[in-house]
């Protein structure tokens, strides 16, 4: 059977292989992960002054030089590691906190729910990015600060969604059955309810990561990060600082901007394949749609009629 079976990592890999969009996303992300892990050893020191400032791309410097005379390619490559690390840490962090708070509130209900709901509702009405700017301005600058700031301002929405999802699940018969079977609250939440939300959680991680990368680049661009570190955001900060737009030095900001866009694109593509894992019905529909296309029949709301002569 080519249908997805079993569990764990194999399942996710199979889902990626099957879906064209997920494959494209996985390849893009794979390239960036490779750059993040091995890139810094493959390029020269991004801090070194290697040539005349603001040189356009040439054979010596593939992406030209910055306003300080540093190599743009080296900066983009080295910046990938920090930017992606913060992005994924924040993406996973906000979903973990969101899940903990949201599912606890949804499952326990009552006063706990009232308190936790109040908490995340307060966080929801606080505008995220301005708060991030304020916090980032007061804390010592650096990647860790940025991650903390983004997690604090980003978890509430996930908590709210997961609370709602938990509410719809906790009254289902399978939860009642687990309760009767003597399962503990913890086990019911982690083994019965949580698996029904896998695709939602994955979608949240991916969405939050895209947000985190964007927000982090934005904060750093405003000078709220550590401007002496090498990240995509500081690359843009320095490009702006060196009047790249005024002088028409597009090579100092376009590569970094493209990287941000590509990572976000790759993550979004990847997400599309994951829905099928927790929704087996979609897998069946895929075979069905293929069959209809092969027999030149439109997928209609009513049961389609496909007359074949075999």
């Amino acid at each position: 059977m080519s249908q997805v079976q079993g569990s764990g990592v194999g399942l996710w890999i199979a889902a990626i292989k099957r879906d064209k969009k997920a494959r494209i996303g996985a390849i893009i992300l794979g390239v960036f992960l490779f750059i993040a892990i091995f890139g810094p050893w493959l390029v020269e020191d991004p801090d070194a002054l290697v040539g005349v400032p603001l040189q356009p791309p040439s054979s010596a410097h593939w992406l030209g030089t910055t306003g300080q005379g540093q190599d743009v390619l080296a900066q983009v490559v080295v910046g990938t590691r920090v930017s992606l690390t913060i992005g994924f840490c924040v993406g996973i962090g906000v979903v973990l906190i969101g899940a903990l708070v949201g599912i606890t509130a949804g499952y326990l209900g009552g006063r706990v729910d009232a308190f936790l709901s109040l908490l995340f509702n307060v966080f929801l009405v606080i505008p995220g990015l301005p708060l991030a700017i304020v916090i980032a301005a007061y804390l010592p600058s650096g990647p860790f600060t940025l991650a903390v700031v983004l997690i604090v301002t980003g978890w509430a929405w996930n908590a709210r969604v997961l609370r709602a999802q938990t509410l719809t699940q906790r009254k289902r018969d399978f939860v009642a059955a687990a309760l009767v079977a003597g399962e503990s609250k913890f086990r019911i939440v982690t083994r019965e309810i949580l698996p029904t939300m896998t695709s939602l959680l994955v979608a949240q991680v991916i969405g939050s990561t895209v947000y985190a990368i964007g927000a982090q680049v934005g904060l750093e661009y405003l000078g709220l990060g550590d401007v002496s570190a090498f990240t995509w955001g500081t690359n843009l900060y320095w490009a702006q600082n060196d009047s790249a737009l005024l002088t028409g030095a597009w090579w100092t900001f376009v590569p970094t901007g493209l990287c941000v866009a590509l990572v976000a694109f790759g993550l979004t593509m990847l997400n599309s394949g994951f829905d099928e894992i927790t929704n087996p019905r979609l897998q069946l529909e895929r075979a069905w749609r293929k069959y209809l296309t092969r027999n030149k029949t439109e997928a209609t709301h009513s049961t389609p009629v496909v007359i074949t002569n075999d």
């Binding site: 069905w288 029949t297 997928a299 009629v305 074949t308």
Partner: peptide
Amino acid sequence: AKAIMRILQPPAVISG
């Protein structure tokens, strides 16, 4: 019964 009403859901098709 559902084929008569044409309300069978995917992955069903009426094949003849």
